[in-house]
Design a protein around this nucleic acid. Structure first.
Lengths: 214, 214, 214, 214
DNA sequence: AATGAATGAGACTTCATTCAT
DNA sequence: TATGAATGAAGTCTCATTCAT
């Protein structure tokens, strides 16, 4: 009652909240988001199910915060390198990219859960399959271009994946329901044509194409 | 015997199967994979729940086929342009990328469901948010590099997204559980260092950095 | 229409009916009664599901007839030996028992399905467990009695199982719902006391107890 | 922590668990194992379906425990008489058999469900019918043997049932899939010939045949 | 008469959320 | 305040039976 503002309590609550998030993160890292159930989580933490709801209004909120926590760390780490480190932008870009890859590598399964979230196992299989299918198409083209002296690409498979990712990601923003709603509400939003142009230029340059095409 | 192979019957069956897939695709496009339930789907199609199981052994199989159908179309369309159209590789790459974007645009929400699969709605929100956060970091760097004359980038926001996508996607393959298993079984597999190098080169070139860095 | 009594048709129908029963028997022998489904059976026979219902009103009827067919064969074989063969009753009894065991042995899984029908796998496990538990109790007693020179038993484990079976089976009749109903309807029926006495005498003699106890 | 081990709570839980088992037992006794469904059971107990799963992992586990509970009581009761009571082995055997019969009698339908588990009602009918058919064959032989002074049998019908039970039960063990697997894996296991011999001797003695036959 | 796709009730199971203690 | 048993809606899947073709 006269409880709610006791500093000691606030402190304890904060600690508990973070312990919950820590356990949840561990669960997601080990078994993906689908293994994050409230009962199992409460058990991990050593508290009652109902007590979770003192700290999070719903499971969705909790899951979102788990995602945010994990991603937040990565964004912070990236910020340090990209903004705060020495060297030219190109050096920092290179360094940032490499660090990102190295960090993801060191927490493989968490990174996988964050980047490629599982829905149904069979669907996941398909996703990997089609990602490779796209990649292969680009890969063939890259090899051909390299043979003609038109492209400069050392590892066509990796570069092909990069192209797939670049294309997909550049579209996620504009395609996302919020962006959509914005557009329909008349608010300013990126146009497809602009994205398309920028994307094409990006890809051509990335593969070392001789001259920038329109 | 009389009946079993009647063309009319086969035709009707094929049509029903495709009608089911069609309705399922619509559901996924409208509400993501999480809105694809057998009861709701059967209701959409106007048949009994059990009847779905005459055409698909399990929900997973159905969902996988929905994914495959939708993705397959895109892969096919891309193949035509990338492999079968006229022009130099660079021209074809450019054309392919633009077509991909245009097609995704025309089926916005399905494309979104395929590229950025929903888990819990709140988690999805976070994903978009953090994708932007990553993007913003890169964007700042791009702007800085452009100001210094080090990078050549017209639409920093889009290019930043491309970078995020390229990085994530190039890692999805090596990070995926199957790739993992392969590595642990001693089978050959792409090494992180190689990916990392190729990735860095890719990014630097894509942003028009003057000189290729290590 | 003028169809129903054509001899040829009747003949064909009889043959089909028996083919159905044959396939059903095979199914039960291979996978127990739980693997007997109408769709699978129709598939085995090579006819339509609905056609099964021309020969059997319901699945229950079909299953009952499968049971009857299989058991009928055994009863017939037993009758030949018990009634129709040469030798004294004791010789015939001995011969009949041995034949029964040998036949069951040669169609192990069908015999098991008939004698110890599966319900739920876990329940089955328990049944076997408790049959052994009963058996062990009797076994201990037999060993003790043999040591005291009171019983004459060569294979206590087998004899213990025989005791369990004799007791259970002698009760199945009187315990069965039909027998019950008969009793309640005032119709004559075996009394528990009589069964109990006969059972005890049977068991004592069977284990070679020196003197018949009351 | 405050709560988790409260005696009152543990007591209530135990009571609920036992209440569930009690209701399940009643269901099985009344309608056999096939009438034991989770929805119906939850309804009987007056709780939600899902609550059953707090006490039992699956329906199979629950059903197995019902079986075990009921059978366990009988085994315990039998043990007391067979092992723990006074008198010679023969006296104890006689007493045990009679007690078993009396107890089964007092819970007629449960005993019936345990001893002769229902699959499909119609199949059950057949089983009873054929048990009688076997019995009748033996009965005739017994009557004949008695008339010749070769057998000593007071109640041929009951003794005939005992013979059927003894034969079936002595075979259930060796015929059971586990025993099978053991044999195929080369592990020692009872041989048919041994069972057959012991069985024949058992039966001949049990019917008071003058001389032991091979 | 034969077909077999369709039916649809009903079985088991999971899990976010609530609320009496 | 914390607890955690209970809830109950919702999901997937099975299969005997029917009936239009």
């Amino acid at each position: 009652m006269a409880y709610r503002t006791t500093p000691a309590r606030m402190d304890r609550d904060l600690k508990l909240r973070e312990r919950i998030l820590g356990c949840a993160l561990k669960r997601v890292a080990d078994g993906g988001f689908s293994s994050l159930t409230m009962v199992a989580l409460a058990d991990d933490v050593g508290i009652a199910t109902g007590s979770l709801y003192r700290h999070f209004h719903s499971k969705g909120e909790l899951a979102a915060e788990v995602f945010a926590t994990a991603s937040g760390r990565e964004v912070d780490a990236l910020r340090v390198v990209l903004r705060g480190s020495e060297g030219s932008p190109a050096e920092r870009l290179s360094r940032g990219v490499r660090q990102f890859a190295a960090r993801a590598w060191s927490s493989r399964s968490l990174a996988f859960a964050l980047i490629a979230e599982p829905v149904e196992p069979e669907v996941d299989e398909q996703r990997l399959f089609y990602r490779e299918a796209y990649g292969e198409l680009f890969c063939d083209l890259l090899v051909e271009g390299v043979a003609l002296g038109e492209f400069q690409v050392g590892q066509p498979r990796v570069v092909a994946a990069c192209l797939v990712g670049a294309i997909a990601e550049s579209l996620v923003g504009p395609l996302s329901p919020p962006a959509w709603a914005a557009r329909e509400a008349g608010r300013p939003s990126v146009e497809l044509a602009a994205v398309s142009d920028a994307l094409a230029t990006f890809c051509l340059r990335a593969v070392g194409a001789k001259e920038p095409h329109p």
